[in-house]
């Protein structure tokens, strides 16, 4: 059966608002899960640190930024559940680069954005470093 991940309604809305506003650039951020409930209940929206001329089709999160944010999240009983980013004017499918950078066990939410706002929203995961990527369905709770 397909794996499922639950995201709180408030968090879900915050992600979509950020990515919609980021258009025509890619927006990105960190998904934080509540260690008790397993539900994604918060995000850290991140400034896309890719170079300006690459921002329309790339995103990058600085490792040291991630390091600081994950320590801060742990102090609140949260942990990094995965990452989200948008594909302006492109489908919500993983690119070669996306797959290459996937960390096993982390959730990747990809959102297609365009002139008319939010398009397709897809979740992906893989279990093993060289393993296959599979789809994860996302539930708003």
């Amino acid at each position: 059966m397909t794996d499922t991940v639950s995201i709180s309604k408030r968090t879900y809305a915050a992600i979509m608002l950020q990515l919609k506003n980021a258009y025509p650039y890619e927006g990105c951020g960190i998904l934080l899960g509540n260690k008790q409930s397993g539900i994604v209940e918060d995000i850290n929206s991140i400034d896309n640190s890719a170079e300006d001329d690459r921002k329309t089709a790339h995103y990058m999160i600085d490792p040291i930024t991630l390091y600081r944010l994950e320590i801060e999240a742990e102090s609140r009983g949260m942990s990094v559940a995965g990452f989200y980013h948008s594909h302006p004017d492109k489908a919500a499918v993983l690119s070669k680069e996306d797959k290459q950078y996937m960390i096993p066990g982390m959730l990747y939410v990809v959102v297609s954005t365009g002139r008319y706002g939010i398009g397709e929203i897809k979740g992906y995961m893989k279990d093993e470093p060289d393993g296959k990527v599979y789809g994860v369905s996302i539930w708003e709770v």
Binding site: A50, P63, L66, H85, A91, S95, E97, D98, Y101, I103
Partner: peptide, 15 residues
Amino acid sequence: VLLLPAIAGGAPEND
């Protein structure tokens, strides 16, 4: 010493 992931990706270039 910190062991960290680089988080990156991109939209598919040629659809």
